[in-house]
Nucleic acid binder design. Structure first.
Lengths: 135, 135
DNA sequence: TAAGGTACTCACCTTTTGGTAAGTTATGGG
DNA sequence: CCCATAACTTACCAAAAGGTGAGTACCTTA
């Protein structure tokens, strides 16, 4: 309400639509499904931002902290651990003092970032329109 | 550790990478940025699932409840309200008893779902590998 | 001797998110 | 008269996410 929201026609030709894989073809994810867990990791508030930052190349802890503006050390550690466990992020610690740790995307993580970047870009480009259109 | 995570080379030719828009070219979202808010809406646990379900066409409240398996009525209402406010979902209520309400994607919502579907598909295809590769 | 740098962990507390169960609406059918 | 129905709302509570500030390790530099 307040904005001219137009409905998208439901009867588009099949080949103009993005396709869901079989098994969730009707949009149903089984509730306990592993993909729900993975989806939660990769769409988490800080997860997206970290993957995004790393899509620009290998970075140190402190650099990631700067890029994911507003993240706490606790959440940075937690998020990196989850992504590392998921095989999306690679941690390389050098045994020097003061410590130096470099984070980068794995091949799988890089593949994922290729899907995340368009999404974030879209959010960035549409954010003002979306939030202004609210009565 | 436990899995053979290989690092992706950092020095790829520029044109093989997905690109971030300027303004977040170095991967920094300003902390209070509107796009953070929008991103939170569209990557929320239930938001993704609802947008996904609606990418298959117009649906009633009760149908959405079934498809987003495990969602409570409270969260369904809340999620739909947010997406409607954001101009991504269109609500059409018919003044009949018992009530009938149909939800569909707006043009903007449809555009978004085109980016979300590949992401969810990726999660679906990779979920088992990811969760099994964890020591 | 003391301070500084880096990458963390931990305990404690607050805030946000989410679930449950009940109530609401108005009408048509038994 | 009373129940069922669809799409909600509300109050209350539990769980999860997240912030804060302190502490740790160890070597280097001043």
């Amino acid at each position: 309400m307040g904005m001219e929201a137009t409905a998208w026609p439901t009867n588009l030709p099949e080949d103009l639509r993005a396709h869901l894989p079989e098994g969730l073809a009707d949009g149903v994810f089984p509730a306990g499904c592993p993909s729900r867990t993975v989806l939660d990791h990769i769409t988490s508030k800080w997860g997206v931002l970290i993957l995004l930052a790393l899509s620009e190349g290998e970075q140190r802890w402190s650099e990631l902290r700067r890029r994911a503006e507003g993240i706490s050390e606790k959440m940075l550690a937690q998020t990196l651990k989850t992504l590392e466990r998921d095989g999306l992020v690679l941690r390389k610690a050098q045994p020097v003092i003061p410590p130096r740790v470099d984070y980068s995307l794995t091949e799988r993580g890089y593949e994922l970032s290729g899907l995340l970047v368009p999404l974030v870009t879209w959010a960035y480009n549409n954010a003002d329109d979306i939030l202004n259109g609210q009565r």
